[in-house]
């Protein structure tokens, strides 16, 4: 199977290079564009027979030669069907919504955690590819079993007594097993809120979940990566 190719539209060289390396580390191929014009050309060629196909776009809204919103329209008009992840330095909710309404499929506000960017990109690209993982009714990570239909969680043979929210939290961690998730990803995906609390609300939830699922003296399954987030170890 061929690797997925992501078009990165970002005028700032450092960020562009950083995105390229992160994407390649995560197994993507990249096409780089530093201006709207280059991006449009790449979109055009991807739509052609024998052109380089593009599976996803990461787009910085502020470009030196024209704004990103109209670029999305032009790229879609040129035949691009891949989903677009908007990176925005503007924080206004209006602009975010506007971006999504005009053809962006997801957005992320700068500064972002690269883990979150990769998670959103994965979700976005997968959404258009296959829903295989979503269709699973039982999730397994090491000796954790989540029965999504019966809403039952087990560690080995032992049933874990989880609240509804803790179950959702664990489900989210299992779906992203082996990958780092940030606090804002957890708040967004489990609570459905894009907020940045000043206190450690997420940590306390994780702490409680961990207390219920981790056994004394074992290597912890749910690892904290300081300054970034959490990983549910899958091996």
């Amino acid at each position: 199977m061929r690797q997925m190719r992501i078009l990165v539209v970002e005028d700032e060289a450092t960020n562009r290079d950083f995105l390229r390396r992160s994407l390649e580390d995560n197994g993507y191929e990249t096409t780089l564009a530093s201006t709207a014009q280059e991006a449009e050309e790449a979109a055009k060629s991807s739509a052609l027979e024998g052109g380089v196909a593009i599976d996803g776009v990461i787009l910085d809204l502020m470009l030196p030669d024209g704004d990103g919103i109209s670029l999305i329209r032009r790229m879609k008009a040129a035949g691009l069907s891949a989903p677009v992840l908007i990176l925005s330095a503007k924080r206004s909710v209006d602009e975010r919504v506007f971006g999504l309404e005009t053809g962006g499929d997801d957005y992320l506000t700068k500064p972002y955690a690269i883990a979150e960017l990769m998670a959103r990109l994965r979700n976005m690209v997968r959404r258009t590819e296959t829903h295989a993982q979503e269709q699973k009714t039982v999730l397994r990570v090491q000796d954790i079993t989540l029965d999504l239909l019966r809403r039952e969680a087990r560690r080995g043979e032992q049933v874990l007594e989880l609240t509804t929210r803790e179950f959702s939290l664990l489900e989210f961690l299992c779906r992203n097993a082996g990958r780092m998730v940030t606090r804002s990803m957890i708040l967004d995906q489990v609570w459905g809120m894009r907020i940045e609390p000043e206190t450690n609300v997420v940590d306390v939830h994780i702490y409680r979940l961990r207390n219920k699922m981790e056994r004394r003296g074992e290597r912890p399954l749910l690892r904290t990566i300081r300054g970034m987030g959490y990983v549910l170890q899958d091996r």
Binding site: R91, P111, E196, I225, R226, G227, M228
Partner: peptide
């Protein structure tokens, strides 16, 4: 070293939040 970098990252998140 890691401890300080992690702490710096946490503070950066707060700076970004503060800015907003």
């Amino acid at each position: 070293c890691e401890e300080n970098v992690a702490s710096a990252l946490e503070r950066l998140d707060r700076v970004s939040n503060l800015l907003t």
